[in-house]
Design a protein around this nucleic acid. Structure first.
Length: 855
DNA sequence: GTAGGGTTAG
């Protein structure tokens, strides 16, 4: 692990002081003291201040005082202006203290400058202090400066209140006041007040004459109301536009999900004769990132090279980000090149490249290494965004020790209470199943926003998540809900197959207006599919408009998992006809449809089509699907040859697939080899040992079974306990093998006993070879009837009525005897039984299963 | 002396 240490932060103002103090003060007549006049010194001072040499200007000021040529207020004013322009708070403070020492009477102009200085440098308290001490000296500029001070320092409420106070005081607000106050109203909390101020503004005529007021209105409609149409109307009506207003429209379109329009606006701007600057290119490049359009991005890249703007840090950052987001193959090469070519780096550029590595996945170590370089070589202090990305990297790496170390550094630098750092910390913990720590991090947050809630909801189990949603999120109108909240809730319900809960969330969605959201529709499709109600999923799919590749992939995966290979493949053809490009996940779904239905020829056909038609190179998952297709159909030797012919070394997943095929076809020899390969690659994976021991057990080789069990014990590997669950009236009931904890256990076992007698009459014979212990036949039968899926089935039968299907869920693969027994039960009782196991769905009806006993 | 545009967490 890299050991991390933070460099001592160096403030930019200290650097500047050191550099200038070693310089000689350029002063033409310095040896001839008789030529020093008040006017010449003042000219000197103004010149230094104008070109930004504040240190020299202050020296000149000192010189004036020493020569008894007392500087007047305009001299100080010039200096303050220079400090405001360069945001130099230290020098500004120095000048302020010199002003106080000078005993001059401060006038309105100087005091207004001081307000502006402190406001722009973030010291709003000092600005406030000066404003309230002004009394009679206050003029409309003081009011404007204070209104915008509050607005730009995030005190929207105070800014709006001050605007109305000013009106009450009898001052007429000017364009500066209007734009600052409307800006303060731009967040949704105060957007209605913004409209009131807008009405007031229309009476004044500033709307027609001032570009900044127009810009503020664009923000009011976009940020306050999500209303791009009205913002566009304001923009179109603006009599005067400049490159800032164009850039703002481009930025807002890009940020609010219309990157295509943003790019169009950019070209319109150029055609209309406005010159794009670094901000414009930066925004337009962000729109390209959003669009994922590499060609337009590259076109802009060559443009910024021609104009020389590529050396700008903002533009450089956007280029790095664009190449990271547009890399269709997840490669960071181009992004890294753009980063390495930048002449100067700042926090933002380091953070952008680190974030790129984290978001493209699989490059987390590079991200951590860059962080180390940022601290040592770059001598740059990380900010809250840097920490947010780094914590995400640690979450992906499952390296909580490093994560906690990095979090410690954010604490030292004072970022730990910043929302996005805390939120990242929560999701780092939820991703690593550390719910207790996630909750702690959540409680620690000073201000919890929707992202915080969503991060936690995502990690909680479905019940808890739903509780949090009902009790806190929905009741607290300040938090609001968004698509992420619903997506997390839906995936929570889907993971345990709680269709009742899923339906409740669906009902809430219809009320909330999110049901037309593409991500939500997609989440609904998978929720219904994963809960066993594929037809409901298909209805959602049919009723939505604007389906994307994820919508199609979700429904195809659904049909494939349910064993409806024909419908899955038909939908795949429809997808191709409608012009949607499949991705690698779509092909996993298509190939798994083939494997679940034993369609060997189709499987080969699609495997070859992937690259030929869509330039998608098969990944490990696709090879695993092909091994599955061959292995399940009994062509174990061909599957083995196929593995040996792969262009890269097969991983544990591929061998695990072969091993389960060996179990179905009782091939102990090949199974042994597969298990060895898995254990070689993943020595701590209990599933390999379990599968191998099952293989020996079904071949009756009990000695070997015992040997494996011993091996597992030595490594202290624990087999995942098999369990099944069923949702009855929105409550999930979970059962383990031989479970008697359920309040209705007696009733359940009575039903099970009666059931066995009934189906034995119809020809059911318990398949005792599925019992994995070496015991007497009769005992084996007893063990068999304690399987969790049978208990869940019996409970389902006594608690629901026909024609409601009984939906059972199991964390492992369903046992062969249980599967057979359920077929008999479906025939004897007329009930439809749907089972979701770790691999697929079984629809069992009238003694038949949709898997054709092939799973 | 007073105003506007770029990176971000789920």
């Amino acid at each position: 692990m890299i050991s991390l240490s933070l460099p001592t932060p160096v403030s930019p103002s200290t650097l500047q002081l050191n550099r200038h103090s070693s310089h000689k003060i350029p002063f033409p007549g310095r040896h001839n003291s008789t030529s020093i006049t008040f006017e010449s010194l003042k000219t000197q001072l103004i010149h230094h201040a104008d070109v930004g040499h504040i240190q020299e200007a202050v020296s000149t000021l000192d010189l004036m005082s020493r020569a008894n040529l007392t500087p007047d207020l305009t001299a100080y004013s010039v200096l303050l202006k220079s400090c405001i322009r360069t945001r130099n708070l230290d020098m500004g403070r120095l000048i302020h203290s010199k002003l106080t020492e000078s005993k001059l009477d401060l006038d309105t102009v100087v005091l207004n400058s001081l307000i502006s200085l402190y406001s722009k440098c973030g010291d709003w308290r000092k600005a406030e202090e000066i404003f309230s001490s002004m009394g009679e000296l206050r003029d409309f500029v003081s009011w404007s400066a204070m209104i915008s001070c509050y607005a730009s320092n995030g005190f929207n409420r105070e800014s709006i209140l001050m605007f109305f106070e000013m009106v009450k005081f009898g001052e007429r607000p000017n364009q500066y006041c209007f734009s600052a106050a409307i800006q303060a109203c731009s967040n949704s909390e105060y957007s209605r007040i913004g409209i009131v101020i807008f009405g007031f503004l229309l009476k004044t005529g500033y709307f027609e004459s001032d570009v900044c007021v127009g810009c503020a209105l664009i923000d009011l409609f976009t940020k306050g109301f999500d209303d791009l149409v009205s913002a566009r109307k304001v923009f179109d009506k603006m009599p005067e536009r400049n490159s800032v207003s164009w850039t703002q429209m481009i930025t807002r379109f890009s940020q609010m999900g219309s990157p295509r329009d943003a790019v169009d606006l950019f070209f319109n701007m150029v055609i209309s004769g406005f010159i794009p600057d670094r901000f414009t290119f930066s925004s337009c490049l962000s729109a390209c990132s959003e669009l994922g359009s590499l060609p337009i991005g590259q076109q802009l890249h060559s443009w910024v090279i021609k104009t020389g703007l590529c050396w700008d840090v903002c533009v450089g950052c956007s280029l790095v980000d664009m190449y990271a987001k547009c890399a269709s193959d997840g490669s960071m090469d181009n992004s890294r090149k753009a980063f390495d070519r930048m002449p100067n780096h700042n926090v933002m550029s380091w953070t952008t490249i680190i974030t790129g590595y984290v978001q493209n996945g699989g490059h987390e170590n590079e991200a951590i290494e860059l962080y180390y370089r940022m601290l040592t070589e770059g001598k740059v202090k990380p900010n809250h965004f840097t920490f947010a990305s780094l914590l995400k990297a640690c979450g992906n790496l499952f390296d909580l020790r490093l994560g906690q170390q990095i979090y410690g550094q954010s604490v030292k630098l004072g970022f730990s209470s910043v929302n996005c750092v805390g939120n990242s910390l929560i999701s780092m913990y939820t991703k690593n199943d550390r719910i207790v720590d996630a909750r702690k991090a959540f409680e620690f947050l000073f201000e919890k926003n929707l992202v915080s809630y969503n991060a936690l909801v995502d990690g909680l189990d479905s019940d808890e998540a739903f509780k949090l949603f009902n009790n806190q999120i929905e009741k607290n109108t300040n938090i609001g809900v968004d698509a992420f909240t619903f997506a997390s809730l839906l995936s929570g319900a889907a993971s345990i197959g709680a269709v009742g809960k899923g339906e409740q969330i669906h009902a809430r969605l219809l009320k909330s207006g999110f049901e037309s959201n593409l991500c939500i529709s997609n989440a609904l499709i998978s929720m219904y599919a994963r809960c066993g109600n594929i037809e409901a999923g298909f209805r959602v799919f049919n009723e939505m408009y604007g389906r994307n590749v994820i919508s199609w992939t979700s429904i195809i995966t659904g049909f494939a998992k349910h064993g409806f290979a024909k419908r899955a493949l038909e939908l795949f053809k429809c997808m191709l006809n409608s012009g949607i490009e499949p991705n690698e996940v779509t092909y996993v779904a298509v190939l798994s449809a083939c494997s679940h239905a034993g369609l060997i020829d189709e499987g080969w056909m699609y495997f070859n089509l992937m690259y030929k038609a869509h330039r998608i190179r098969p990944r490990m998952e696709h090879y695993a699907c092909m091994v599955d297709i061959l292995g399940r159909s009994g062509f174990l030797d061909r599957a083995m040859l196929f593995i040996e012919s792969m262009p890269f070394t097969a991983n544990a997943l591929v061998w695990r697939t072969l091993l389960s095929a060996c179990r179905i076809h009782n091939n102990t020899e090949l199974g042994k080899k597969a298990a060895e390969m898995i254990i070689e690659r993943d020595p701590n994976d209990p599933t390999a040992y379990v599968l191998l021991s099952n293989l020996y057990a079904s071949a009756g080789q009990w000695e070997n079974v015992a040997k494996i069990r011993r091996g597992m014990k030595e490594r202290s590997l624990v087999k995942e306990a098999g369990c099944s669950w069923i949702e009855i009236e929105n409550k999930v009931h979970k059962f383990y093998v031989g479970d008697t904890k359920h309040p209705e256990a007696r009733h359940i076992y009575k039903e099970l006993d009666e059931l066995v007698v009934r189906i034995k009459e119809k020809g059911y014979v318990p398949a005792t070879n599925f019992v994995l212990h070496e015991v007497e036949e009769e005992l084996k039968e007893q063990y068999l009837f304690q399987h969790s899926e049978k208990i869940a089935l019996a409970y389902g039968l006594i608690s629901t009525r026909n024609p409601k299907p009984i939906r059972i869920f199991k964390n492992l693969r369903v046992c062969g005897d249980c599967h057979n027994m359920m077929k008999y039960v479906s025939a004897a009782t007329g009930r439809e039984i749907v089972v979701r196991d770790s691999n697929r769905f079984h629809h069992i009806k009238d003694g038949m299963c949709s898997c054709n006993d092939y799973w």
